[in-house]
């Protein structure tokens, strides 16, 4: 009896899902994609100009890339602080999330948001609330690849 009820409920929920999907407007995929492509592309272009400038100064590619990241993160922090980055994000979607500026935005926005709960348990504790998971997965994957390499080498 209970199983039957559960099954009925599942069917009802499935039907409701179909209704929701029927009524729900489709996202403007093309428009979103153009925004994402152009904004993401422009952020990377700006970074390329900065990197080329540093390499022009005789820096190694690695160091130039690191400086470029730092400058991009600084610019994202500034734009977030001025309240511009979230407005850009509304339109650009993944175009402003995927670049490292999006990662910086997540960190800065979390830090700013919890300022009113204090500098230690507000800013300090919450600063990695979005970026933390990102780093955890990045570190973990890189570690396991490294471990694999250790086995292959031995």
């Amino acid at each position: 009896m209970e199983e039957q009820n559960l099954e009925l409920k599942n069917i009802e929920q499935k039907e409701y899902d179909d209704l929701v999907n029927k009524v729900k407007p489709k996202p403007p995929v093309l428009k979103n994609c153009i925004w994402a492509f152009v904004v993401g592309g422009l952020i990377c272009t700006l970074a390329q100009f900065i990197q080329n400038y540093f390499m022009g100064l005789g820096m190694s590619r690695q160091d130039a890339a690191s400086y470029t990241s730092i400058i991009m993160i600084f610019l994202a922090a500034l734009a977030t602080g001025l309240g511009v980055y979230d407005e850009l994000g509304k339109r650009a979607g993944a175009g402003s999330i995927v670049p490292i500026t999006g990662f910086a935005n997540a960190i800065v926005a979390s830090a700013m948001e919890f300022k009113r709960e204090g500098y230690i348990f507000g800013v300090g504790a919450r600063i990695f609330s979005v970026a933390g998971p990102t780093l955890v997965f990045g570190f973990a994957v890189a570690f396991f690849i490294g471990l694999l390499k250790v086995f292959i080498n031995s």
């Binding site: 979103n32 980055y85 407005e87 402003s96 999006g102 935005n105």
Partner: peptide
């Protein structure tokens, strides 16, 4: 800030 995201985070709203 309680239910979704920090207010300054760049999040794209969906149609819903």
């Amino acid at each position: 800030r309680q239910f979704r995201f920090p207010t300054e985070q760049g999040v794209q709203p969906t149609v819903t």
